[in-house]
Write a protein that binds this DNA or RNA. Structure first.
Length: 127
DNA sequence: CTTCTAACA
DNA sequence: TGTTAGCA
């Protein structure tokens, strides 16, 4: 893993900061976690600690919601990303088809290999 | 002072 | 979702 990614995955932001960064209430941020859309780390004092990736995900969730998606649907999107990411690593060993190569490149551009972002609608990079 | 959980005049 | 109580 590259250090740039490591920093984005470092959980160091208290919920108060995330509130300002996302414009959401603590209630909402905690609610999304309860729905399993988030999994922030915890400090020794049991305080939630968010990473920049978490903030990005929260921003995405915010957009998905405004786009009319329901919590359950958003959850499914992330579950599928999870499997898709695992499938990529597993396939990394042998040769990949031309189609898979295109799919992989597209994922890179969509910033998915890192567990989030993308919506079949807006981001539509020519692959 | 900030955050946490649980609960609802 | 907001808000509030009672802790840590």
């Amino acid at each position: 893993m590259k250090e740039k990614e490591l920093r984005r995955s470092l959980s160091v932001l208290p919920i108060g900061t995330v509130m300002k960064l996302t414009g959401l209430s603590a209630r909402q941020i905690r609610y999304y976690e309860q729905k399993n859309l988030l999994a922030p780390k915890r400090s020794k004092g049991n305080r939630r600690l968010y990473s920049l990736n978490d903030v990005d995900r929260i921003l995405d969730i915010k957009d998905y919601l405004n786009a009319g998606l329901k919590i359950a649907e958003i959850k499914h999107i992330y579950d599928k990303k999870r499997k898709q990411a695992a499938k990529q690593n597993h396939r990394m060993s042998g040769q990949i088809s031309d189609n898979e190569a295109r799919q992989l490149l597209k994922n890179e551009l969509l910033n998915i290999g890192h567990l989030q972002s993308d919506f079949p609608d807006h981001h539509n990079y020519p692959v």
